[in-house]
Nucleic acid binder design. Structure first.
Length: 140
DNA sequence: CGACTGACGGTCG
DNA sequence: ACGACCGCCAGTC
């Protein structure tokens, strides 16, 4: 048997599987972004076990045809929407985010306020910063 | 096969 | 803040 051919097939299949796995992990990760939170492409990639492959996340979002994904919760690393400002998709994303209480100000979303992990920490620790340490001594 | 093109991201001047 | 680069990945011409 033409080993080389078989090998070629095997490799090609392996690559397809790798891609399929990566795609599935990326989709699951995006699905797990809580409503009202946002995450960057890079963050998604990292959490999906694919560090450094933000571009792959963008690619998957573009070609995905499985169950609907909360794609609007995925932003660029600096909080900006990835689509050209003013485009159909851009406006739609702004609308969907707004419906969850995430506002786009100056072309950007406040990641400090809506970042995924940060939100989680906030939910767990919930220590509102508003109150400053007002020098008060401890009364022991 | 090389060049180009995106739902990207980090670094550097 | 901004552009130039470079690394990264899949598709298209």
């Amino acid at each position: 048997m033409t080993k080389s051919v078989d090998r070629g097939k095997t490799e090609a299949k392996g690559e397809r599987d790798d891609y399929a796995r990566a795609e599935a992990r990326i989709a699951r990760t995006i699905l797990s972004i809580p409503e009202g939170s946002v995450a960057s492409y890079g963050e998604i990639a990292t959490r999906a076990g694919l560090p450094g492959r933000a571009r792959l996340v963008g690619h998957v979002l573009g070609v995905w045809e499985g169950e609907p994904l909360p794609w609007h919760r995925v932003l660029r690393a600096d909080g900006r929407i990835a689509f050209p400002a003013g485009s159909r998709s851009f406006r739609k994303q702004v609308r969907l985010l707004a419906a969850e209480g995430v506002l786009v100000v100056n072309r950007k979303v406040d990641l400090a306020a809506h970042g995924w992990d940060r939100n989680l920490d906030q939910a767990l620790w919930a220590p509102p910063p508003a109150v400053k340490p007002r020098k008060r001594v401890a009364k022991r």
